[in-house]
Amino acid sequence: MSFKTKINKYFTNHAETRENHEDASLQTHYYKTTKEKGINMLENYFTHSQVYEINATSKEHGEISVFVKKGKKVFIVATVIMVRPYHTAIDFSVTTESIFPFDFGYSTKVIQQLYNKVNQELQLITLKENG
């Protein structure tokens, strides 16, 4: 990861995952599941958590938008896309609202926490299997 990327991670209020991100913790995760099971897992987690509140769900588009109820004001969009049978990508986009235009890496930490939870619930496909 370049020095500029490290600096930008702390001086922004937004973080999102993508296929070939310089930061390995922000690369798209793939799971051995279907789109429906991935969305249902996330929906169930957000619904039963005291931290999150679901704003909207679009199963057709594979998206769930969520607010954080406690602590910092955070808006999350989770996207679930089935690449091929039992090979589903889950991406997150996180924006932190504050009076400052940066969150000192908080958005990235939220994504890492979400991926940790999903990794406990769904079978992660490693890079070797991802080919």
Score class of each variant (00 low, 15 high):
residue 59 K to N: 08
residue 110 V to I: 12
residue 113 Q to E: 15
residue 61 H to V: 11
residue 91 D to N: 15
residue 42 L to M: 11
residue 13 N to K: 14
residue 118 V to P: 04
residue 36 E to T: 11
residue 82 M to D: 09
residue 77 V to Q: 09
residue 42 L to P: 08
residue 10 Y to L: 12
residue 24 A to C: 04
residue 14 H to C: 12
residue 122 L to D: 08
residue 44 N to R: 12
residue 29 H to L: 05
residue 45 Y to M: 05
residue 131 G to I: 06
residue 120 Q to E: 13
residue 128 K to L: 12
residue 1 M to K: 15
residue 96 T to A: 14
residue 73 K to Y: 14
residue 72 K to W: 08
residue 91 D to F: 03
residue 6 K to A: 11
residue 112 Q to E: 15
residue 6 K to S: 12
residue 33 T to W: 03
residue 120 Q to A: 10
residue 123 Q to I: 11
residue 26 L to S: 00
residue 98 S to T: 05
residue 122 L to A: 08
residue 15 A to F: 05
residue 94 V to M: 04
residue 18 R to F: 05
residue 71 G to C: 01
residue 13 N to G: 10
residue 109 K to F: 07
residue 61 H to W: 10
residue 109 K to V: 10
residue 98 S to Y: 14
residue 54 I to M: 06
residue 52 Y to A: 04
residue 72 K to Q: 14
residue 121 E to M: 02
residue 20 N to K: 12
residue 39 I to A: 00
residue 111 I to E: 04
residue 67 F to P: 04
residue 1 M to V: 14
residue 38 G to H: 04
residue 66 V to R: 05
residue 30 Y to E: 02
residue 90 I to C: 03
residue 60 E to L: 09
residue 123 Q to G: 07
residue 116 N to D: 11
residue 53 E to G: 07
residue 86 Y to W: 14
residue 82 M to F: 03
residue 44 N to Y: 05
residue 130 N to T: 07
residue 12 T to Q: 14
residue 129 E to D: 15
residue 85 P to Y: 05
residue 122 L to N: 06
residue 37 K to Y: 06
residue 127 L to K: 10
residue 19 E to V: 10
residue 65 S to A: 07
residue 13 N to I: 02
residue 28 T to R: 05
residue 114 L to C: 00
residue 7 I to N: 08
residue 20 N to D: 13
residue 92 F to V: 03
residue 69 K to F: 09
residue 112 Q to R: 02
residue 40 N to S: 12
residue 73 K to E: 15
residue 23 D to P: 10
residue 79 T to N: 08
residue 117 K to R: 15
residue 55 N to L: 05
residue 81 I to R: 09
residue 45 Y to E: 14
residue 7 I to L: 13
